[in-house]
Computed example of a mutant assay.
Amino acid sequence: MKLMASLSLATYPDASSSKIGANAVALVQQIDAALHAVAINVDIPDVSNALSNYLLDLPYKIQEVEATSRKSGKDLLKAVTQEAARGGVTLTTQELTAPPALMGDVAANHSRYFDVCLVGWAPANQTARMLAEAILFGSGRPTLLLPDSQDVEVLGHVVIAWDGSRVAARAVADARVFLELASMVTVVTVTDEKPLPGQGIGERLALGLRMRGLVAEAVSIQAGDSSIGTALQEHALKIGGNLLVMGGYGHSRIRDFVLGGATEGILADLRLPVLLSH
């Protein structure tokens, strides 16, 4: 059965970078997946009255914003289409509309029909962050963040952030397709961040991966004065990791996202592709 990846594209108020097309295609090529790209366009309810029409010309401003959003969506889909054609990737595209407050919900609901969800990431793009958080907590699917600042490389070295928790175990299961393609897997346990459920938990996971035919090792690190998200990414990059796999901690209180420390650290300063699973 062929895998299907969903790429959610932000259009308003901050549009995704066109670089996400190349990165998404490069990634799905590696896992031999089909790609479905969806632009989430804004649909602003008309709440104008006679006074606002006279003073602000509100209907025109709404039309202008919606037109800008639709143009951004079409431009992004065109860029993805061109990249997919060059890369020989099977692609389908779609445009969805939603009020500004519900764009994340629409993206999350749509993402439930796919195997893995892709989101482009730029530090200043709050719309992309909103979509990523909504998809992570609301889709029930793994969410793969692709930083716009770099090209997606061959994901040959997968690094697993492991603390023995349910969400970490879920992330490992969701990353199976990437683990099977990896030439090396490193299990990293941070020992000074919180109590862990026993000794040698990283080596226990690494042993299980080796029994499944993977090349895997376990290491323990200390975060020290760094945030756990920073420590994990710095170590992953230090050992040549191309993909970081970790559980996404936190929950949503009616779209008010409350994030765990590790997840917040990753989202605040993304340095390499990260697969988050809730």
Rank of each mutant, 00 (worst) to 15 (best):
R112C: 13
F114P: 01
D115L: 04
D115E: 06
V116S: 06
G120W: 01
G120H: 05
G120S: 05
A122D: 15
A122H: 14
P123R: 06
A124V: 13
N125W: 06
N125H: 07
Q126P: 02
T127C: 13
R129F: 06
R129V: 14
R129A: 12
M130V: 09
A134P: 04
A134E: 02
L136W: 06
L136M: 12
G138H: 08
G140A: 06
R141C: 12
P147L: 02
D148E: 11
S149R: 08
S149D: 09
Q150R: 15
Q150Y: 08
V152L: 04
E153I: 00
L155T: 07
G156E: 12
H157S: 01
V158W: 00
V158T: 08
V159A: 01
I160A: 03
W162A: 02
G164M: 03
G164S: 07
S165Q: 04
R166V: 13
V172I: 11
A173S: 14
A175I: 05
E180P: 00
L181F: 06
L181S: 08
A182F: 09
S183V: 03
V185P: 01
T191C: 05
T191I: 12
D192M: 05
E193P: 00
E193L: 00
K194H: 13
P195F: 04
G200I: 12
G202Y: 08
A206I: 07
R210I: 06
L214N: 14
E217T: 14
A223N: 00
D225P: 01
